[in-house]
Amino acid sequence: MKIGFLTCVPVAIGVAGYGIAFGVIANQAGLSVAEAALMSATVVAGASQLIAVELWADPIPIGAIVFTTLAVNLRYSLMGAALEPWFSHLSPKQVYGSLFLMADENWALTIRDLRTGSGRGAFLLGSGIAIWTFWVVSTVLGALAGGVIGDPTRYGFDFILVAVFVALVAELWDGRSTLLPWVVSLGTALLTASLLPGRWYILAGGIAAATLEVIRYE
């Protein structure tokens, strides 16, 4: 567990970058510092939290937020399932506790560690604690900074959200196989946005791309 924590610290510092951005954006969306921190502490899933505060409005579009969170995080089911062989010697309590702290970054590190045959079942937990700590603290810092910034358009801070997603795209790019599903998602989103009110185009784009992928799989 300690090894997991230490290995993950450099990665967790990167996570803190997203955390600060999330805090700023959450604050600008109208969440208090406490609410932003609560979300980071209990949801522990960066991309879906950023998308949720992007959807945030008055009144809160609850359905869109919860469904989109589900869609964005469905991948965790696969990631958790992939760890199954290494969980066999842990108690159910340890397994389900570790999974709460599972995020993309520490999952990737855990898979790498376990493939080397270390058998360190607590690696996910240790790295998860590192991620969680940095994530929550950086959210608070970002939310406090967001309050100081004031009018977001003045210094270009309104652009942070777009910038975060552009950076995420650069990170999620997985070679040429990504191109077609992304183009389909983009086209569907643009079309849906012009036809339907609200933010349903986000789910429409994602579902269209996933459907295409299921159909064309060989």
Binding site: T68, S77, V162, F165, A189, A193, L203, G206, A209
Partner: peptide, 21 residues
């Protein structure tokens, strides 16, 4: 097959957010 579909979801959703924006 299903796994491949789920794997493209995060990237596709981020692209779907960015496009209209």
């Amino acid at each position: 097959r299903l796994e491949a579909g789920l794997a493209v979801l995060p990237g596709a959703i981020v692209v779907a957010i960015l496009g209209p924006e």
